[in-house]
Simulated scan of single mutants.
Amino acid sequence: MPSSAYPVLRPLSELAAADAPIRPVAPAPRERPRPRDHGPAAGLRLVCDRAGFARARAFTRETLRGWSLADRADDAVLVVAELAANAAAHAAPAVAGPAEVRLGISLVPGALLLSVTDPGDDAPVPAPADDRVLREHGRGLHIVDTLADTWGWLPRPPRGKTVWARLPARPPT
């Protein structure tokens, strides 16, 4: 049921204007994969630092290679890197000591489901679109939105959230 804490995700194609703001939201219940729909799954706990990000990228690439999906690895690695960087930048500072995030990769019918769970409670918010295409920060969720079929987030009570992205299992033709 939609609420301010659990809004319904709208496909980008339904946005009124191409320049409308991207709003990350949680998936509608019918969009969540049911456990019996899942294929293989893999997970990794990592610390938010350079070594942890390198492990996340290598883990994603190796996992997809093992599933014979190496052709999807570049997009998946970029999405994982952006989600992990957002967790480090926005969620990790709220935690005392080194923040730990969890990376999840699962294969659902026709798609890869990538997720990063972090200790932050705030919803991910894309930076406003502007004409500064060469800016260094603030483009990550726009990149995720471009590469993913859909994406959103789920609260993880008592604390934290999972930000997820669904990528097609087959490359675009």
Rank of each mutant, 00 (worst) to 15 (best):
M1N: 14
M1L: 14
M1D: 14
M1S: 15
P2G: 12
S4L: 06
V8K: 06
R10C: 08
R10K: 12
S13H: 13
L15E: 09
A16Q: 08
A17H: 11
A18R: 13
D19V: 04
A20E: 13
P21V: 02
P21T: 00
P21Q: 05
P35A: 09
P40F: 05
A41T: 12
L44S: 03
V47T: 12
R50W: 09
R50Q: 15
G52R: 00
R55G: 11
A56Q: 04
R57T: 10
R57P: 07
T60N: 06
E62I: 03
E62A: 14
L64W: 00
L64S: 03
W67V: 05
W67A: 05
L69V: 04
A70C: 05
D75F: 02
D75V: 00
V77S: 14
L78H: 14
L78I: 04
V80E: 05
A81V: 00
A84T: 06
A85D: 11
N86C: 05
A87F: 04
A88E: 14
A89D: 14
H90Q: 06
A91M: 00
A92G: 12
G97V: 02
A99S: 10
E100V: 11
E100L: 08
R102G: 15
G104E: 10
I105T: 01
S106Y: 03
V108D: 13
P109Y: 07
G110Y: 05
A111R: 02
L112T: 00
L113K: 00
L114E: 04
T117C: 09
P119H: 06
G120F: 01
A123M: 06
A129F: 14
D130E: 04
D131N: 13
D131W: 08
R132V: 10
V133I: 10
R135W: 09
H137T: 09
G138I: 02
G140N: 01
L141W: 06
H142V: 02
H142A: 12
I143N: 03
V144W: 01
D145M: 10
T146I: 05
L147P: 12
L147S: 07
W151T: 02
L154E: 15
P158L: 01
P158G: 03
R159G: 10
G160P: 04
K161H: 15
T162F: 05
W164A: 02
A165H: 03
A165L: 01
R166M: 09
L167M: 06
P168E: 12
A169W: 03
A169Q: 02
A169E: 06
R170A: 15
P172V: 11
P172K: 10
